[in-house]
Amino acid sequence: MEYKNETVSIEGGWPMEHWQWKFESLALIRKTLEALREKKLLGLKCPGCGLVYFMPKPYCRCLSIPDEWVEVKDTGTVTTYTFTGAWAYEGIADEGPAGTPLIIVGIVLDGTDTMTVCTLSDAKPEDVSVGMRIRLQWPENPEGKLEDLAYCVPL
């Protein structure tokens, strides 16, 4: 048999949308998403250690059950950042969403103890820094989807 010094790729699919488990966390997340329609941010507080989860989580790291809904602010602090697309690959931009130049920031909203990622708009790459203050940028008509939380702006 002929020896080939190459790797063969085989086309395949990974239909992740079919992963429809009955998550406990989904029921909680849906409640938080529903509140987004009124531009309200609902976090879940742990009675054991007081940590506030946003998005909500069905159990805490201290193994208590967070059960107190609390409203959190739409301001927060940048904990880390990177850039995507043309700003990441030095001009070798992909077509589509991954190629769009964006500033991606990790943020901790005021009154919460969890980090989430968000796109920083109205800013240049040189403006962003760890510790900078931001505010969520609400869409005009929030639809109660995770995408409602996709953008923030410098405070």
């Binding site: 966390s25 997340i29 940590l51 989860y53 946003f54 998005m55 909500p56 989580k57 790291r61 904990t79 990790g106 901790v108 103890d113 969890t114 980090m115 989430t116 990622v117 995770l146």
Partner: peptide, 10 residues
């Protein structure tokens, strides 16, 4: 946090 389930390891 991309998992959406909230991590306090911020």
């Amino acid at each position: 946090g991309i998992a959406g389930s909230g991590t306090t390891n911020v």
